[in-house]
Design a protein around this nucleic acid. Structure first.
Lengths: 341, 341
DNA sequence: TATCCTCGTGTGACCGGTCACGTAACAGCG
DNA sequence: CGCTGTTACGTGACCGGTCACACGAGGATA
């Protein structure tokens, strides 16, 4: 407001040198202020800060990245899915990353074909990401990730658990199947997720393991695509050919579609057939009948993936230490009951 | 493979000067190759390309952004919602942006409180985004966007339609309500979305307008939060106090919760009460009863938002011209029927 | 044969920060 | 009073690209 009303009518955005000139200091001092270096007289810092405010100066991240060779960018590789689980995990990743001062760049796989995967990863790498988070990757994505030998750390975040080590995912599936067994069911089917999803695989293995542990013979799982539509179609088919009293579906959507099929052929859940889902999407409590399912801590998993990745990046664990994501938990509602026959 | 097996054991990534040295040309020539300038002898280009391949050279985007003052970055401001609609739009935005050679950076609003919104937008601006896409913003976000006078173009993408001009959103709501009226319903309730969502507002207005146009007195809409849980609770309450034969819910989830409430008090859909939703999430066809709803072209809307933004950024419209997103369409299923009384 | 133009390529400066120093001013100390 | 150490700041080079321009070779033209 001293000499001109408009401090800078120019086209380009102000740089630290513009700020320095206005504040009457050197550009290095401005740099110190924006990095809050302790070695500054408070009055100097204040002068600079007001110059920054006056010019509406915003540090140029590209320049900073260039000078420091640190992009503070994390790439997210998401699947082509619009489910509650995936969206929750992505959001959790975003807020955790932002809280830690990292930016996020997002790509979604068009398909899981190797070329697509490679091109998505390329796109991320070209941006100079410092780390990669693969959200709920299909199994065929993993070998590609390996084979590419990326120069940055990669973290997998799936409901399988953050790292491949604690896959209590299978445990969740076993709990679901055990619940059915304890109710007295013996002829239990499994509608699984797509062949190439890690989650699908683990849940299927949980089903097989639990059946086996109880000396029940599992039926070969049907491989679906996570959609209610598939659950419906598979249900129509299965109910014609199989004589089962219970079904464990790989996710809530397929369970929903299956329940539709049960009704469509004039039978009912849980009187004629029990159904268990997986995920506990927010709608599951309100389906008809309310769905017994396995709840997951999507947010905890996503958050944990970021803290783990940051550790890999040599970031101090920081506040909050490492929070263990909540465990999988069986939620019993009314889609399951003892068999009537 | 000539002198050393490992072309470059060094720590830093190769730069155009490294490539130039290996190819025996100047760094400028390398720059021309990666920008495929036409003024190059094919053999020279080939030499450079093989050097690039050998060194696994990847252009540094930060340096490029710095030199050109173009970040080719688009910021996405998403709401805190994990719904199918939002996720679809974000994915559509992502693939359209990538196809046009832009990168994407993502932020999710923790809440719609002004400070949160400002901080999210700041975070995006600090990254030097060239444009902003606000996905399904709450109404209170819009004035903030205005007030901030951002130096970059902003595009809203909501099911309201891409720009504020073609909000056939209200038309979708009117079609839903008209459907109920044509079936013979007169006492029609509306469970709306949250007060501060643009979508909620438009759908509510559509409800009011259509009731009015048919000389029916609308009941004051209940403002919900998009969740099935709310639909359930509101249903329990409404069914006790109101004497209606039909309900138009602001989205499918609330409709689902409402149907749960209807059953919970021992009545049934559509015999005792008809229900219409909005969005047509993939599950709606498999609910019990299958839900009459209004389908939206989320992907079309998201894609269109990007092409519009790119036009604002002075990008040639490019191939594919401007595709008009599909219109809203009423999908009649079995949750609606003529009133029995 | 001198002049001009075009094509293909090289040179220096610059984008906006950061880093490693250099250097005044002032204190404490023997 | 000279020496060293610390504090608070300034200077030059550099990160890895792009841009404007320079320049030599060769063909067309006068």
């Amino acid at each position: 407001m001293s000499d001109t009303d408009i401090p800078e009518a120019t086209g380009r955005a102000p740089s630290i040198r513009d700020v320095a000139r206005l504040a009457g200091v050197s550009y290095q001092t401005v740099s110190r202020v924006i990095n809050n270096s302790p070695q500054l007289r408070p009055e100097t810092a204040e002068k600079v800060r007001s110059a920054i405010a006056e010019l509406k100066f915003v540090p140029n991240q590209a320049a900073r990245a260039l000078a420091t060779s640190r992009s503070r960018l994390i790439g997210v590789l998401g699947p082509r899915a619009t489910t509650h689980g995936v969206a929750s995990m992505v959001q959790a990743v975003e807020s955790a990353a932002r809280a830690a001062g990292y930016r996020l760049t997002l790509t979604n796989l068009a398909t899981s074909a190797p070329d697509d995967v490679r091109s998505s990863i390329d796109h991320l790498m070209q941006q100079g990401v410092e780390g990669l988070i693969a959200v709920a990757p299909q199994t065929r994505v993993l070998p590609i990730l390996d084979e590419l030998k990326l120069p940055v750390p990669v973290q997998i975040v799936s409901s399988t658990g953050v790292s491949t080590s604690h896959n209590d995912q299978a445990a969740g599936a076993r709990a679901a199947v055990r619940h059915l067994i304890e109710l007295g069911h013996t002829r239990i089917l499994h509608i699984a997720g797509p062949r190439d999803w890690v989650e699908a695989d683990h849940r299927m293995r949980g089903y097989l393991a639990e059946m086996d542990a109880n000396d029940l013979s599992p039926r070969p799982p049907i491989l679906g695509d996570w959609t209610a539509q598939f659950g419906f179609e598979a249900g129509i088919e299965l109910l014609r050919t199989e004589d089962a009293t219970a079904v464990f579906a790989g996710n809530d959507h397929m369970a929903l579609g299956f329940m539709h099929a049960v009704r469509a052929i004039g039978r009912s859940v849980p009187e004629d057939i029990s159904v268990v889902g997986f995920d506990d999407v927010p709608e599951s409590a309100h389906l008809w009948p309310p769905l017994t399912t396995v709840r997951q801590d999507f947010v905890g998993i996503g958050t944990r993936a970021v803290t783990d990745l940051l550790t890999l990046l040599g970031e101090s664990a920081g506040e909050g230490a490492l929070v263990e994501p909540g465990h999988l938990r069986l939620i019993v509602r009314s889609s399951t009951a003892p068999p009537s026959r």
